[in-house]
Nucleic acid binder design. Structure first.
Lengths: 335, 335
DNA sequence: TTGTATGCGTTATCAT
DNA sequence: ATGATAACGCATACAA
């Protein structure tokens, strides 16, 4: 690839490299005549700007990283789309990596970002991330925004959703419909998001003078199969349960399978609320009532915040908590 | 960010930059003694390799681009995961962009890749991409692998699925179950994938001495609503139809709605096959029999092929067509 | 308004 | 086995 350089363009235009550089970046005062000449030479030569050289010279870059643990999950797909839009608006390139919950892959990615001189990153850290990871990340002092998964470490910027409020909305909805025997299904036991959602759920129950029953709060993997299994066992043991708040839509879908198998119908014999509002939620029969957390907006806001940090905004850590909203469909019946 | 440079490490170790560089890259013959000294200095100084400088010097990079039109779609999420894995194995960084079918955004991304000196790219081009795009891309002569969407231009490497075979499998399945009146529903009229699937469908019919009827081949939008509408009209006009091959699972779900409304039951009064094996396929009642195309594998293979091109493999364009397979569930009844 | 010269941090060639 | 030094392509301080 015999790439054309600034110097070659300069020669062709009969000017210096400085002049060409200034024309390219609209800097300094260049006479119209020479600007025209340079533009023409630029055009004719098929010049391609070498961002790598510029980055080296300027000790900056136009590249940011996004670390996810599961790009396959539609929720993170949406978030990525939002972030990607925002990055594109500001001519930043987005590096993507998928940790699949591997702490090693995560570390490897961040190291790679550092070597490649990325100017910032958005992270949804793997579950078992050691605190050392965050400590060293802070010391690097490169802008890093945490997303979605609640963090212990308040020193980081964070964008996520209000899990507590979301679960309150869901539980409230079920209570209004007259349900008193409400389970909470799904999520992994050490998840902070889950803890917050359980908080919303139980606080609402208590507000209505209902005693939360810990045996009605059951974890599950983020798969339909496991959720179906878990729900099956729960319903068999406690047939009095008439409604459930699910940790995720995926879980709710699994619960639906179980209900069908038991010849119960969501929306008639049982009320079900999900969380996330993934695409399938509106497609499934009956359509799933769920808490929508606007993944795309999380991505956008994270992008905006990251950008401000890159531009040396130096305020204290920002924690942006987006309000979720209840999307009422059919899975709780009609009032 | 006062970053440590090779020169500083060299000074600390009392050697030249050349030596440090050689130690870093395990090149040349370095005595054990100095290697130790350099390692120590490297460690103590908190040195971070500057890939940007190296890339400039070497006129290469370790960065590849991935262009999708909808990262939100779980199919592409899977594909991305497969590609990402492959890239990571070879220490390549992955730039992601989402065109959302915008030809401008697509062009902008590719230009950006060129400026940033990316060493290759994987593209699922936007629908209305002008042929000029492909022409200029070829002239750039940077490795580019096309994926998923069939291309007219045979000069490009391509990784996708065998739409023809997939539709044959689906049609065959219905024929084996005794159906003779089989429709083909869905897809947009100018889609090449659809043409290939229709090819598989009609060739199988002909093989069984059945005349394909063009009025039983109807397009639809990629939404349940439109598919339901289209299917409704079709079934009303041709009540003798007892089975259908659908262009996508989403279409099949729409058809299911229609059947329900007509008090017909998929799996009993009607046989339905989808395409893609999306998550909902296994959830819906009855569970959808469908043609599964392994998105992740497409990503992996694209990655592998891209890598070989980056390493200057110079054979003719490769077209890798992965075999789909039929996933039999309940929507065609049981034999 | 434009040109000259130097440096960004690395690699590789050529000496020693 | 190791060191000195010239690129890589661009941006900018300073000179003209």
């Amino acid at each position: 690839m015999a790439s054309v350089t600034l110097a070659q363009v300069a020669e062709r235009a009969g000017v210096s490299t400085a002049t060409v550089s200034m024309v390219l970046r609209n800097r300094g005062r260049i006479s119209d005549a020479t600007r025209q000449r340079v533009m023409k030479a630029l055009d004719e030569s098929g010049y391609v700007y070498n961002q790598t050289a510029a980055n080296l010279r300027n000790r900056t870059s136009n590249q940011v990283g996004l670390l996810l643990h599961d790009i396959t999950n539609p929720f993170y797909g949406e978030m990525t789309a939002g972030l990607s839009q925002e990055m594109e608006r500001h001519d930043l390139l987005l590096f993507l990596a998928n940790s699949e919950e591997s702490v090693e892959r995560q570390q490897k990615f961040v190291d790679s970002l550092m070597r490649n001189n990325a100017c910032g990153m958005v992270l949804c850290a793997a579950k078992e991330t050691p605190s050392l990871f965050f400590e060293t990340l802070k010391r690097r002092n490169i802008p890093a925004i945490m997303v979605v998964r609640p963090m212990d470490d308040a020193d980081f910027d964070f964008v996520g959703t209000d899990n507590f409020l979301g679960a309150q909305l869901a539980t409230q909805h079920l209570l209004r419909l007259g349900h008193r025997h409400i389970a909470f299904i799904g999520g992994s036991e050490n998840s902070a998001s889950r803890a917050q959602r359980i908080g919303g759920y139980s606080s609402k129950l208590l507000e209505h003078r209902i005693q939360p029953d810990s045996s009605w709060v059951v974890p599950s993997l983020a798969s339909q199969g496991d959720s179906a299994r878990v729900a099956g066992a729960l319903f068999k043991r406690y047939p009095e349960i008439t409604a459930a708040v699910c940790y995720q839509d995926v879980v709710a879908l699994g619960v639906m399978q179980t209900l069908r198998k038991m010849d119960r119908v969501a929306g008639k014999d049982f009320a079900l609320v999900g969380f996330d509002d993934i695409t399938e939620a509106s497609l499934v029969q009956p359509a799933l009532t769920t808490v929508s957390v606007t993944a795309k907006e999380i991505g956008r806001q994270a992008g905006e915040l990251l950008l401000s940090r890159i531009q040396r905004y130096d305020g204290p850590p920002k924690h942006i908590i987006l309000p979720p909203k209840l999307v009422v469909r059919e899975s709780c019946g009609f009032k």
